[in-house]
């Protein structure tokens, strides 16, 4: 199969890999926002995950431990955010942005001496003969485990939020923290847990960049992926499966525009490089104008701090 020099099977397989970092980070941020907290520090947590994961993988020789290290790095940084916003009731927007600034600086300091090192490789999951099935083999059975993990995580987040008591509590806290408090839920503790989860997921997303997508460390390696993840959460209207759609759409068009260039398309390059952003906007406009407005709402308590005085 070939369309103007572009093989759609290869394109789909590539976009599934390209979308992983923003997908993981966006899933984490979705849970954070569902609990009523707006953490704009995704970029900072991602890059901390990228360096911590890289260091862990290089020193242990295990890419798996690298991802654990990345998750830990992101979570530790998010703990700073949690202490400030939940403990000291600091403004969430400003704290999140400060977190990004701090994370970018700290990661660069930590990363000195890690330039030009190759991390252990994250190999494809051995599916044996399945991989050789035409079309499906390349799309479904040729990836490393994190790609499958990102899809599984989407399903898990969806299931937890929709069908479990924990999900109910998270949503309650995010919609109306006063009522949740009156019902006896520990608002701050729930939010703390969500923030740490968000940090860990962002950290893993960052680690995927430094360990799998671009297996290396350089300063600023995430190059704005955290901001795209934030946009994808909004794009999803706070629905987990739409995170997958949004990340695949964005990742897909980013890939497609480069592939179009590589195969000599006549579309001017300037428009091609704007395309991922413009098409994401366009799709969101179509999605948000067609549906009932209520289903698009952000969690009601988003960005508001909670204080229960006794």
């Amino acid at each position: 199969m070939d369309f103007g020099g572009i093989n759609p099977v290869v394109l789909i397989a590539s976009l599934m890999v390209a979308a992983v970092p923003i997908m993981l980070a966006a899933l984490g941020e979705l849970v954070v926002e569902k609990s009523g907290v707006l953490n704009l520090g995704v970029e900072g947590m991602m890059i901390m995950g990228a360096i911590c994961g890289f260091m862990a993988a290089v020193h242990t020789g295990s890419p798996f431990l690298g991802f654990i290290g990345g998750a830990a790095g992101g979570a530790v940084l998010s703990l700073v955010f949690a202490v400030l916003t939940q403990g000291l009731l600091a403004n969430q927007v400003a704290t999140g942005l400060a977190l990004t600034l701090f994370g970018l600086g700290l990661s660069s300091l930590m990363g000195q001496g890690y330039n030009g090192i190759k991390p252990p490789l994250t190999g494809a999951v051995p599916f044996g003969p399945l991989r050789d099935i035409p079309v499906l083999g390349r799309i479904l059975f040729s990836h490393d485990w994190v790609v499958y993990f990102s899809i599984a995580a989407t399903a898990l987040v969806w299931w937890v939020l929709k069908a479990t008591r924990l999900g109910l509590v998270i949503r309650a806290v995010g919609e109306n923290h006063d009522a949740a408090h009156a019902l006896g839920y520990k608002v701050q503790r729930v939010r703390l847990g969500c923030i740490l989860f968000g940090g860990a997921m962002a950290g893993m997303g960052g680690a995927y960049i430094s360990l799998a997508r671009v297996p290396q460390w350089t300063d600023g390696i995430t190059a704005g992926a955290g901001w795209i993840a934030l946009a994808i959460v909004v794009f999803s209207s706070w629905k987990p499966w739409r995170i997958l759609i949004g990340a695949y759409l964005f990742g897909g068009i980013s890939q497609l525009q480069l592939s179009l260039q590589a195969s000599g398309s006549k579309i001017p390059v300037g428009y091609l490089s704007m395309a991922p952003y413009l098409i994401t906007i366009l799709v969101l406009v179509i999605m948000s104008s067609g549906r009932a407005k209520a289903s698009l709402k952000a969690p009601a308590a988003l960005g508001q701090n909670f204080h229960a005085s006794r």
């Binding site: 400030l84 000291l88 600091a90 704290t95 942005l97 400060a98 701090f102 600086g105 700290l106 660069s108």
Partner: peptide
């Protein structure tokens, strides 16, 4: 000093400004 240290320092200043605001 590496410019990254300054960036981290700015981040710290913001953290403290936001924290003591309480």
């Amino acid at each position: 000093l590496p410019s990254a240290a300054i960036q981290a320092f700015q981040g710290m200043l913001l953290f403290f400004l936001l924290a003591v605001d309480v």
